[in-house]
């Protein structure tokens, strides 16, 4: 295995034309996979020193987060805390301090675990990814980026440059809950995030996303469409719970059974609605 400390994005693009090269960001996923024999790249392209890939800024009504920005840096950002509270809450529960000091947002998304903790808030906030590849730059919505466990819309030679999140207008009620065996260092059994807007007794806006209950992190569009513009009644809460349980396709694994995960998602959707007003 070879190691290359990449200086800038031009060098990265050229180096990525080698199909046996892999991007090394924080390394908290990739180095574990290499030691476990699950990944065997010939060249590691360390992007940790490329200045244009890290940092957080506000631009044209969006928060732009460089792909190689660490989870700790994002947690420390006051603009993220103020405008994207679900992102802050979700990242605070990712791994441990040691992991968050190294792990990056781009790494969490590119790794494409069904349990990726940053994906829930970013799906809720309608994030977009700026990708760069051999055919130039392009922007893709995060909803649609995940294709399956470990599979994404990244083509050979592509990298994630920036995660772009439109700043939501004020008035959304944030919700996030991750269910795991313990608080730290736990991969979610199931997690649900929500953004809900209530005016009077009416649900004027609603978004749900869930993790560890399908091959990828997902938005629960069917639930959203069914209850949007309805009055927030017990019947609507029950309907949302039922639809949420139907919209997911969890599996049995060492952490929990599929049935349990389905119940957790239903309960969390109901809880988010009850807490909203």
């Amino acid at each position: 295995m070879r190691y290359q400390q990449v200086v800038d994005e031009a060098e990265l693009l050229t180096a990525l034309s080698d199909p046996a090269a892999a991007i090394l960001s924080g390394g908290t996923d990739l180095l574990v996979k290499i030691r476990g024999g699950v990944a065997a790249p010939e060249t590691l392209l360390d992007i940790g020193r490329i200045p244009t890939l890290s940092g957080i800024r506000e631009s044209n009504g969006s928060i732009e987060i460089g792909a190689a920005t660490t989870e700790t840096e994002i947690l420390a950002s006051s603009i993220v805390q103020e405008t994207l509270p679900v992102l802050t809450t979700a990242l605070a529960g990712l791994g441990s301090i040691q992991i968050r000091n190294r792990g990056t947002l781009g790494g969490n998304l590119a790794n494409a675990s069904p349990a990726a903790d940053s994906a829930i808030p970013l799906l809720l906030y309608d994030a977009e990814l700026d990708l760069v590849g051999p055919n130039g730059p392009r922007t893709v919505p995060l909803d649609g980026f995940f294709l399956g466990p470990g599979k994404t819309a990244l083509e050979p030679g592509d990298y994630i440059r920036t995660i772009r999140v439109p700043i939501p207008e004020p008035g959304w009620c944030p919700f996030y809950h991750k269910v795991g065996k313990r608080r730290a260092l736990t991969i979610a059994i199931a997690s649900v995030g929500a953004l809900i807007r209530i005016e009077g007794d009416r649900i004027v806006g609603v978004r749900f996303a869930a993790g560890s209950v399908a091959p990828t992190p997902i938005r629960l569009h069917a639930v959203e469409e069914r209850i949007r513009s309805n009055a927030l009644t017990e019947e609507v809460v029950d309907e949302a719970r039922r639809l949420a349980m139907e919209s997911v396709s969890p599996i049995d694994d060492v952490r929990a059974t599929a049935d349990y995960r389905r119940c957790v998602v239903g309960d969390l959707v109901a809880r988010a609605l009850r807490l909203a007003p």
């Binding site: 390394g27 574990v32 360390d46 040691q98 000091n101 190294r102």
Partner: peptide, 8 residues
């Protein structure tokens, strides 16, 4: 603080 087992 970092895990030195996960840093080259």
């Amino acid at each position: 603080p970092v895990n030195s087992c996960l840093v080259l």
